[in-house]
Write a protein that binds this DNA or RNA. Sequence first.
DNA 1: GGCCAATCGTTACACTCGCAACCATTTCCC
DNA 2: GGGAAATGGTTGCGAGTGTAACGATTGGCC
Lengths: 176, 176
Amino acid sequence: MASPLIELERFLPYRISVLANVMSTAIAAAYEERFGLTIPEWRVIAVLSRYPGLSAREVAQKSRMDAVAVSRAVNRLLRAGRLRRAIAPDDRRRSVLEVSDAGAAVYREVAPLALEFERSLLESISSTEGAQFERLIGVLTERAERLSVRLRNGRSPPRKKGRPTQPTASSRPRRR
Amino acid sequence: MASPLIELERFLPYRISVLANVMSTAIAAAYEERFGLTIPEWRVIAVLSRYPGLSAREVAQKSRMDAVAVSRAVNRLLRAGRLRRAIAPDDRRRSVLEVSDAGAAVYREVAPLALEFERSLLESISSTEGAQFERLIGVLTERAERLSVRLRNGRSPPRKKGRPTQPTASSRPRRR
DNA sequence: GGCCAATCGTTACACTCGCAACCATTTCCC
DNA sequence: GGGAAATGGTTGCGAGTGTAACGATTGGCC
């Protein structure tokens, strides 16, 4: 391996990230301006429209969102009257979420736009290519996940509940 | 169009976003922990290793980053001694950026990991599929960009320098 | 029953991000 | 030459995000 030079413009993860960014930005424009929805909020509505009655945890799993992100999105949607929340009778920690009429209205208006965007995207390639592309996304995602887990194994074992607040400066200049 | 239901798990933009997220997270783990590098910082180093002497603006264009993100990444890298900055003699607004020895060392260590990750990813599919995939990414990115521009055209014309600080509450609950 | 560990959801905090506004410098154009 | 517009880069600010810590509840196990 003489001199490994990355050409960012051709580097696969970089290109995927650009594509993802362009797409989300484009779609977000469709609901952000009109409804004041954030991306997490939109995702929550989308999931709950399809699967009413899920708990916040389940929404997070289905949408691959962070539990915190879901919690916040749900709270904003509740305040906006776009969601209803009940408490599971058999487990009072668990919430039971459903879109309200207002939420359903948002969904009815945004979903066609999103689907239309997707359709319009796929118009630029053949349906064979589209199927192929989706398949490859699946394969690569799975693969990346496995690799990711492997890479993360240089970690320290998860401490349970460390010292409350070591004032400053642990060992490294840890940025996050 | 009877009842348009989005199945998030199959929705293309969503799947791309998941893939991108998994990939960046995986790679970031390779340099975040060891060098305290953020993604923008890594991108800047990658670009400048390949194209020394670019200005911040040019780095932003090549890496598709926001000018602000570049500015901040460059500053952190400068403080860490991983970059050198000079002022272009013919245009004193413009900076001339180069990785320092320390920056080059980082690059020499991270680049192989990144490339290895990419290689390992692509191992899960055939080289024909890989080429196809990359081509489709390009097509879809371009397409998404055009659609995006079109969608953005419901905007208000860009005001020049509005009233300094309308205290609160403009017209809409604009979230961003 | 009583205690401990696990789970659901939220909050605090520290950080990132991007737009708008801002200087400094340069270019355009009369 | 001199002001207006454009350009490079930085900073302020509002908002978003993930990790860790937390309270509440539940389940397992003795």
